[in-house]
Amino acid sequence: MTHAPILQVEDLAKTFTLHTQGGVQLPVFDNVSFTVSPGECVVLSGPSGSGKSTLLRSLFANYLPDAGHIKVRHAGGWVDMVTAEPREILAVRRETMGYVSQFLRVIPRVPTLEIVAEPLLAQGVTRDEAEARARALLARLALPERLWSVPPATFSGGEQQRVNIARSFIRAFPILLLDEPTASLDQANRETVVALIIEAREAGTAIVAICHDAPVRDAIATSLFDVTEFAAAA
């Protein structure tokens, strides 16, 4: 890769302090540093509880690290997700960084098609085009058409997962964070999602992923990053 990094993680540290549990300290990681460039897919590895999701959520500013920097190239400059103002973080999330969580957390009561089309609408794409692209993507992910007009609250885990993926892949984010994107999917759907991820990567998206499934990991990863090496001392 000749591209300059778009994501730079520097000396990141995170410890949870549980005040409701008598102030017990849960050190997760310390001194985490790595970079990701456009077209790269870094897969975080390590056993359960080693802090992969905590790191990924920190990158998205859903968790707040105690020290270090997460620098994201955004709108022609750098934003540090650790210190940025909420509105700057939201701008990064709107334009630069997408996130696919293990669980769907979207607005209740909004129909599936609308949820998927919304990122395009927010970008100013016309409703007709946004919905057409949303339909095409949902079809590709084999989500039954009868579900498109229904809010996903009652969907199965795999169905929700695909809505989530559709919403994140409907537009090209410069950076994508994926937490177990294929976890609850069957073989056919898993292959579709892997294809989507590879397409995005080849189109220049920088990806950080958590993925326990070895074949999927091997298909998408350009490098592995072992979180256990940075486990913080308790």
Partner: peptide, 8 residues
């Protein structure tokens, strides 16, 4: 940030 305060 709302989700940060609520989740962490």
């Amino acid at each position: 940030l709302t989700d940060q305060v609520l989740d962490d």
